[in-house]
Every structure is written in structure tokens, then in C-alpha cells.
Design a protein around this nucleic acid. Structure first.
Lengths: 167, 167
DNA sequence: ATAAACTTTCATATATTTTTGAAAGTTTAA
DNA sequence: TTAAACTTTCAAAAATATATGAAAGTTTAT
């Protein structure tokens, strides 16, 4: 397979998969493109490669930078900005996990705690509701903690051992 | 807070969070509703509670059943079907993990393997591409395996120990 | 076998999300 | 300071995903 063909296939598929993960298609495609790029790309390069508008490119590059998985790069003697992806996959996984925890798990915890604590438990229904939401709260919290710990200690011996055991 | 108010808040928020996770709003809401419901609900109940159409209710209940996290229930002497949610949270997490692995990770692995193996590596670009996609493949595979093992052994002593260590 | 009671399907309508592109904003070299 | 070279913003347009509801399908009691 030609390089261009393979790259295209990869970028397109990654975009489609991104949609399922609640990440927009273009954002996933830009990230895919930068992941397999030898060298930094300019915004023009990205627009050209993906056939997207300037605004779209700008917004999604910015989002990737906010996630901390794409970096701006300055080339000597060049006015334009260039972009590269975080290529250390452990680092990438950690940043994605943290961002999703912040955006999706923390708000869930907040609501669960609120409704569980505030609901009127005089009725049977209310009691059951409080019980269920409390259990959910504890479970989600535990899960979030495990993710946090796993990302925190990714390099230490313990985790390496666990990884080995689990493989 | 009144039970009805708390329930509403929970169901609405869960729906909104579901969207971010790539799960449609109604599906998340139905699941939320069943999670905090004392007893099985009929399709009518669900339609009424969420103010949605019959078709919408039917499609999303079916999707939840396909995921294996909602069950049909038959009440003695009742013609209608009733529905309940899987309320064992470990079981719920496992089913969700398996379903997402099947739908989202496996296809990613497939593409990564394909493009990594098939790309023409005569050029520098091609070489780099093959290298990067291969690394990604290995990483995603490893992650998927960890999830698989973690769900498989959820009840045994080793996992319990790990959970404790990680808490 | 029939009809009542229910569920599913799917073409169309609605709602939501994403993309565009022109205008506004910013930066830098001279 | 200025103007060229670039980036960002945002209202409107396009694309995508979701919801509706009437018709078709299924099941069950008689």
C-alpha cells in the first residue's frame, strides 16, 4: 500500500472511531495525522491534507492543545506555527484519562453526591433512590481513583509488576 | 429535595453526560431511570416519565438490552413487558467495558494492524508511519488486555488485593 | 381463528453538532 | 508605526444524529 493511501485510511478510520468516543471527527483526524507525521505540520498543511476550512482547523488544533496532546512548535526563521502530537503513548493515555476524568467523571460525581444527600428519604422510593445513587457515587469514585493512581505511578515498579501479571 | 425533583435532576444530568460518552441521551436517561427505580417499569411508564415517543423508547430499550445492562421482566398475570436495570455495579462495568471494547477498540486494532503491515516502507515517511502505527497497535492491545483481565477476574483474591493497594 | 393488546420498524421531521468563511484580531519585520 | 502574514472568532449553513408516530408486525386469551 502506498504511504499516502495508508495514511488516508488511518486518518479516516481514526476520525470515525473518534466520533463514537465523543470526540469530534476533525479533532480525531488532526490528531491521527500528527501522530504519524515525521515532522511538524503547519495549519496550512493540515487544512490541505484533510480538506477542511481554516476555522475548523484552528478550533480543533486549539482543542487538542487544551487537552495537552498537541504542541505548538516554532521553526527557526519561520513565521508560521507548526504543530506536533505527543508521541509518548503513556503520556498520551494519561492526558486523555485526566481530561476525561475532569470533564465527565467529576461532574457525574458532583450530581450523584448532591441528589443522594438531598433527597427526601421519608418515602420508600426516596430511600431506594438515595441508596442507589450513593452506591453509584462510591463506585464511580473508586473507579476514578484507580485511574488516577494508575496514571500517577505509571513508571514505578509496582505498576510494572501489575502490568506483567495482567498480560 | 422531593423525590420526583431529585430523580428528574439525576435523569437529566445522566442523559447529558451520556452524550459526551458517545451514548445517546435517551438511552442514558432510560438507564438512569431504571437504575433508581424500585420496581420494573413498563414501556408506557418510561414514555410517560421521560416524555418520549413509543418508537424512541422501543429503540433505546432494545439497545440497552443488547448491551446486556437492562433486562425484560414478566409480571405474573400481566401482558405487558417490564424492564429492570442491571444493578450490580461490577457487573454493569464489565458489560459496558466489554461492549465498548467490541465496538470501539477491536475495530481500531484491526485498522492499525492492517495499515502498519501493508504500508510501503521504502520511503522514510512510510517507515515512520509503520513504526508509529505499530507502536499504537501494541499499546491499544495492551490496554485492551488489561481491561479484559480486570473484568475477567473481578472477584478473585488477586484483584481484590490490587484494588485495595490502589485505593 | 380472531381480535385485542401490545411492540417494532422506518420514512420523515426535528434537534444538535460540526463546518464554513469572511471579518476581526494579533504578531512581527522593517 | 505600518502593513504583511498569519490566527481566531462567530454567525450562518451544512451535515449528522436523534425522535416521532403511523403502519406493520407479533403475541396471547378466548
Amino acid at each position: 500500500m502506498e504511504f499516502t493511501e495508508a495514511k488516508n485510511k488511518f486518518v479516516q478510520t481514526w476520525g470515525a472511531l473518534g466520533s463514537q468516543w465523543g470526540i469530534n471527527k476533525t479533532m480525531a483526524q488532526i490528531h491521527a495525522l500528527l501522530m504519524v507525521s515525521n515532522e511538524p505540520l503547519s495549519m496550512e498543511d493540515i487544512m490541505e491534507e484533510l480538506q477542511i476550512s481554516r476555522g475548523n482547523a484552528s478550533m480543533n488544533i486549539r482543542a487538542l492543545i487544551d487537552w495537552g496532546i498537541v504542541y505548538k512548535e516554532f521553526k527557526h526563521g519561520e513565521r508560521r506555527e507548526f504543530f506536533t502530537a505527543e508521541k509518548d503513548l503513556d503520556e498520551l493515555a494519561i492526558k486523555i484519562a485526566k481530561e476525561r476524568s475532569k470533564r465527565e467523571i467529576k461532574p457525574a460525581l458532583k450530581v450523584l453526591k448532591e441528589v443522594s444527600a438531598d433527597v427526601d428519604t421519608k418515602t420508600t422510593e426516596g430511600k431506594y433512590f438515595a441508596e442507589q445513587t450513593d452506591k453509584l457515587y462510591e463506585f464511580v469514585l473508586k473507579t476514578d481513583n484507580i485511574i488516577e493512581k494508575a496514571t500517577e505511578y505509571k513508571d514505578n515498579w509496582l505498576t510494572k509488576l501489575l502490568m506483567k501479571m495482567m498480560k
